[in-house]
Amino acid sequence: MTPVDPILWNDWHPVAARCMLDPARAHETMLLGVPLVVTINADGTIAVQRVDHAAPHQDERYGLVWVCLGTPTREILPIPEADEPDRPIVVVGSVGVRASGPRVIENFLDLGHLGYVHARYLGDDPHTRVLPYTVEPLPEGGIIATQCKMFQPQASPAATEGFMVDYIYKVERPLATCLYKANPVQRDRFDIIFLIVQPVTEETSIAHPLLLCLPDGTTPAALRAFQQTIFMQDKPILENQVPKRLPLADGAELPIAADKSSVAYRRWLSAIGLTWGVIRADEKARAA
């Protein structure tokens, strides 16, 4: 068996959303190949158990239940905006996807697919040109892409017309990413969308999107439905990528300038030595 990646083993990952737990039924899931059982009592107390081992480190934040299977080397991903009083957190719901975690994150960063996979929502033909943007390393690790711009016909449920949307993307942990997107009403402020991926096995994941949007009259249900629609458009693409694990070797796939953030993400994963859900540069590609 592949030794489990120490970076992910000692990090925190979401394993369930509180709003999806039911006292009448234990929630069975898996993290890094380890089966877990999540239960909630009638009084709302949540417990995560391992079948084969003492209970793992666990906590709850942003409406999600988080687990660290190893020894936590750092805090749960900090989201400072979660403390802003006018920014409710909307848990979109957990979506299983037969793709590796890094493939799911890379797709979230991708600008070139918006006009096709999300046509008439987040982009549209012929406005498919990816304008130059900037990618830089973050001081604490990870990457940030700024000055991203995309014409969007329906940027959010509240958008009444298409407009040029400004984006900033950040990847602060190998399997957590977020974007800052100009709010369609208050165009000088940002809505924030997080995508945190639960690595189930090397080739399967559960995506946990979170919305931290400024209230604009859209109900949480409408926000959730919009985001689920978007994710359901990505899912068949993700499940048809071959190989399932993200190849990190330069030249394994053929990026162009528009794919700058993908290149930076892959190089960062290589540099920190991530092994889970990737084909390392020094490893010969296994058959898909």
């Binding site: 693409i237 990528q241 071959v242 796939e253 053929l254 990026p255």
Partner: peptide
């Protein structure tokens, strides 16, 4: 597809 590995049959 050589770009990102998505199946052409899609």
């Amino acid at each position: 597809c050589p770009h990102r590995g998505v199946r052409f049959s899609l």
